[in-house]
Design a binder for these strands. Sequence first.
DNA 1: TTCTTTTTGGAATGTTAGATACAAAACGAA
DNA 2: TTCGTTTTGTATCTAACATTCCAAAAAGAA
Lengths: 198, 198
Amino acid sequence: MGRPRQFDEERVIRAVCQEFWAKGFDGTSTADLCRVTGLTRSSLYNTFHSKEHLFRRALSYYVSTMTARQATVLDTPAASGLERVRALLAVIVDEETANRESGRGAGCFTVNTITSIASRNPDVARVVEADLDKRLSSLRLALMDGQLDGSVAADRDPGDLAWYVTSLVSGMRVAAQSGAGRTVLEGIASTGIEALTP
Amino acid sequence: MGRPRQFDEERVIRAVCQEFWAKGFDGTSTADLCRVTGLTRSSLYNTFHSKEHLFRRALSYYVSTMTARQATVLDTPAASGLERVRALLAVIVDEETANRESGRGAGCFTVNTITSIASRNPDVARVVEADLDKRLSSLRLALMDGQLDGSVAADRDPGDLAWYVTSLVSGMRVAAQSGAGRTVLEGIASTGIEALTP
DNA sequence: TTCTTTTTGGAATGTTAGATACAAAACGAA
DNA sequence: TTCGTTTTGTATCTAACATTCCAAAAAGAA
């Protein structure tokens, strides 16, 4: 059977994810990855093949956990369509505030990736594009529900509104990285929601 | 007096700016900079001292030209406050569309910088922070004008609204890098403007 | 135990990075 | 023309980079 692994793969991915999130693909060295995981180069390469594979694993882990969490909020029944979008933005604000206070640094790994390597790496681009499609779909459904229950303006294409909310979220992530705190983010969210009301 | 320069400094800065814009600080090598400028390492280092200095020069050049252009739009008299903000968003859409069609790639150098090295380089962070302050001020003035002339909702703090518009712009930049074309960007802009109306 | 297989530690490899050294070149000033 | 000064081209330096190699270690299977 061979010698067993001395590490937990998901724990390693989590550590790698945080490092790539903070420093980006180009700004992270394999030495950094060894340091934050506690693994040697051998174990890292034996398991994950290359820095780029490891990056994609970390990014996929991030988008799947993030998007799942957000989809859960968006799919909450009972609440109106608008309330579900409002809840999503509240989650974003909470996340950014928590990350800031725990010293993890602000911003979103996905946004950071879109604005850096995604344009130069088709494989990475595919990961973020697939994730974007999922998020747009979830949003679109919630917004259509909102148009049916009367909480969301019915005179706009729900697809356009989904793009708007996605942009708003990205903008809030960038604002957080620019130093915006909870109060400012809450202002952005509550103002941004106004655009959706009938 | 010494030997005269064989290159135009601003032309070099423009070329360097495009390269850093496309690949970021970490993703751009000094060899890349020599290639796009046509200069040797000697001339580059003799004039700009280091890769980091050159990056800050390029970033400063970008933010000053960009923010000046946007301030011009925002300061147009005659038009209402809301119309001036609407005009700003239209400029963003036009820029992104033009960049996309000219193959220059989408997105904003400032946003790319905020989401990558700004958090790890205080000198760079200062440049984007100073620029952010300027943009927020211009926006705030236009929005206050809008509240006075009745085109902008008066029940919100103009500072909060300025942050909202800034986030919206950043979000549109990220959306453009995610593949959003002119139609989608126009939808985001026109939806986003709704949040400002009384 | 012995064999087979896999992981692990650490050194080694080849490449590229940012930055410099230095002499030749190109000008104005004297 | 000669001198002083700055730029330029080439060569070079050291450090860092991603990746590979290989032998020792650790398990199950025979």
